[in-house]
Nucleic acid binder design. Structure first.
Lengths: 191, 191
DNA sequence: ACCTGAACACCGTTCAAGT
DNA sequence: ACCTGAACACCGTTCAAGT
């Protein structure tokens, strides 16, 4: 990817560190993603990240922000085909399937995004923006069927609960995740 | 509590370590619960825990097992008053409120119990027993209303999702948690 | 302005040695 | 059998010094 020769000054180290962190997260899991291992992967010294981030958490916020942008893009993909209740219902089911599939295909990233390891530190602009984008996808889809805040929370809770129970290995994951999501969504009534 | 004079051999160090871990978890959070800090709290050397546990995870499994026993006891408390659908529905709602209240009042313990930090290591007898006890409470309550595995998973997912979103600080927690739980459970249809 | 190297105070775990 | 003390390989973070 990077064919340019390395100099003392890296150039785009900030983004390179975020990229390196995402790679370690995918390949080795959250436990192996130390600030030092991120720096090693980016080919710089252990102290170099502190030129671009206040601390490890500040870097991880940007990794989570990347996660939310990827997540939001996936959620924006399925579009309702029409305006009938059946179309809107099908649209919501598809969002649920996308939600749970994202969690299973990006386990460590999903845990970083929705876990509370980062909840005490201040969020970045992009983190907040991408997080809202994801939330709005779900909120809009639900409110076309039932325009109540509690309805969005009910649907989100059900799908998020299934996703976390799967990711955290508290339930067996069915061979067809899509069917499993739809089999519980039949008990979500938005009348 | 312990007025006996300390000797070289502790006596009940195994249980004392689990107790110390629970205390640190409640008072200082999951990040501060190192094996060394647990040993310090129990008044022994850093290597002493290895006489009773293979490693840190083996100790944490017992802490989680304690959590599940506490959780199961709370879930067993509300009993259905009768056999009408309304009684059974009210029983399920009460279980949901107990579930979410437990999560909020034992945040770090709840995260340890349901997170995946411990999912790769082998579980102890008591962990499995207490975990099943909790699951059976929920499963029985749901199946009296709707005798399908998917119904249990739907109800559990919805309540567990709300609990995790609260504990992980992804949603605002209403002043009355009970009302918030009931306001989403109205969208759970077990017809 | 950005990066390095060494240092500090922490970890989990191992192991010879003490009781 | 149970516990200690020292050691090893890690961490996150700081800071003077280099480019």
């Amino acid at each position: 990817m990077n064919t340019e020769k390395r100099t003392y000054h890296h150039g785009g180290l900030r983004d390179a560190l975020i990229e390196a962190a995402v790679l370690i997260l995918e390949e080795e899991g959250i436990a192996k993603m130390s600030l030092r291992s991120i720096a090693r992967k980016a080919g710089v010294s252990q102290a170099a990240p502190y030129s671009h981030f206040a601390n490890k958490s500040a870097l991880l916020i940007e990794v989570a922000a990347f996660g939310f942008s990827k997540f939001s893009s996936a959620l924006e993909n399925p579009v309702a085909s029409g305006d009938t209740p059946d179309d809107l219902r099908e649209h919501l089911a598809k969002l649920g399937v996308v939600y749970v599939n994202f969690a299973m295909e990006n386990k460590a990233l999903f845990q970083l995004m929705f876990g509370d390891a980062l909840s005490h530190i201040s969020k970045s602009e992009t983190y907040l923006k991408e997080g809202e984008r994801a939330y709005n996808c779900i909120d809009k889809a639900v409110r076309r069927l039932k325009d109540e805040a509690a309805a969005t929370l009910a649907a989100w809770s059900m799908v998020h609960g299934l996703a976390t129970l799967m990711v955290d290995q508290k339930i067996n994951v069915a061979p067809d995740v899509g069917n499993q999501v739809r089999s519980i969504l039949q008990f979500l009534s938005l009348k």
